[in-house]
């Protein structure tokens, strides 16, 4: 794999240190995010996921440890903080509740404007971001508050994409949407990834979605990185995941049960497609015989 764009080194974060409410949210975390990869971060509520991703663009400062963006500490100076905000885009949960401008166009332009880009470049980026997220040209002059839930979500994501981040971090980007809306958002994110080569970090507790898209996964538990690896490697440890309170993809469950019933399946199976091809192998074997 190529070199990491973001490097998290020995990151520890303690909330309200020295008070009765003291809580260690992150405990000595090491994590690399590589250029152009899709990383899925999974973990139950309270595992430290949100605290971790807010460190990635200096919204929260580490209690100890550092975060390096292309080798430089992001918390080094005011300038480095500003720079990381542009290079690491962060989409929070339910981002549609952060829309505030009079028009969709102006809301998407908020980020690029804060980056002090010239007007022509801002315009280019707004239209590009709108295209990536499937926000039609005709919506740009509308008020964001007149749109449907799914459209609002896409506008909010466009607002971060317009900053053209090299790492796009999304916290539960599909939460609360219907299946059609979930699919669309995922496609939007993938379009941005394909066309710009940006790294994508998706924080989710939906195993199915993490499994089908991620190149690599990191599992957080009690403020520590419990596992990293390809989805195959991670889902091969189904029992551990379940012990951490995480649901495994339903296809992994089916595969485990099939094996228990004496059907031999190759390697790790965690998506419907993989299961189909694994079973077609068996079926093919039978037909050939």
């Amino acid at each position: 794999m190529n070199e990491p764009i973001l490097k998290v080194e020995n990151l520890t974060h303690i909330y309200s240190p020295g008070t009765p409410f003291e809580m260690t949210a992150l405990d000595n975390i090491d994590l690399d995010i590589y250029k152009g990869e899709i990383l899925g971060i999974i973990g139950h509520t309270g595992s430290g996921k949100s605290t971790l991703i807010q460190h990635l663009n200096a919204l929260i400062k580490p209690t100890s440890g550092r975060i390096l963006l292309e080798g430089r500490d992001i918390n080094e100076s005011k300038q480095s903080v500003r720079e990381v905000r542009g290079k690491v885009g962060l989409v929070f949960q339910y981002p549609e509740y952060q829309l505030f401008e009079e028009t969709v166009y102006r809301d998407i332009a908020f980020g690029p404007k804060n980056m002090k880009l010239d007007p022509a470049e801002i315009d280019r980026r707004v239209r590009l971001a709108a295209r990536f997220t499937g926000v039609e040209e005709s919506l740009l002059e509308r008020s964001p508050f007149d749109l449907s839930g799914g459209q609002k979500r896409r506008v909010a994501i466009a607002g971060v994409i317009a900053m053209m981040p090299e790492v796009l971090v999304l916290d539960e980007p599909m939460a609360g949407l219907d299946p059609g809306g979930r699919e669309e958002i995922m496609e939007n994110i993938m379009t941005y990834h394909r066309e710009t080569g940006a790294a994508i970090v998706i924080v989710t507790h939906s195993m199915e979605e993490a499994a089908s898209r991620a190149d690599r996964m990191a599992v957080l538990s009690h403020g520590k990185v419990a596992m990293t690896g390809t989805p195959e490697e991670v889902f091969a440890r189904g029992e551990e995941l379940r012990r951490m309170g995480l649901a495994t993809p339903v296809m992994t469950d089916v595969a485990d049960k099939l094996r228990a019933l004496g059907v031999e399946l190759p390697g790790t199976v965690y998506t419907v497609e993989q299961m189909v091809s694994a079973l077609m192998e068996l079926e093919g074997g039978k037909r050939r015989a």
Partner: peptide, 19 residues
Amino acid sequence: ADECAGALAEHFKANNRAT
């Protein structure tokens, strides 16, 4: 998952036996 695995196992084991 149980139902699914059960039905699949039945099908493929029947296949194996047939093979």
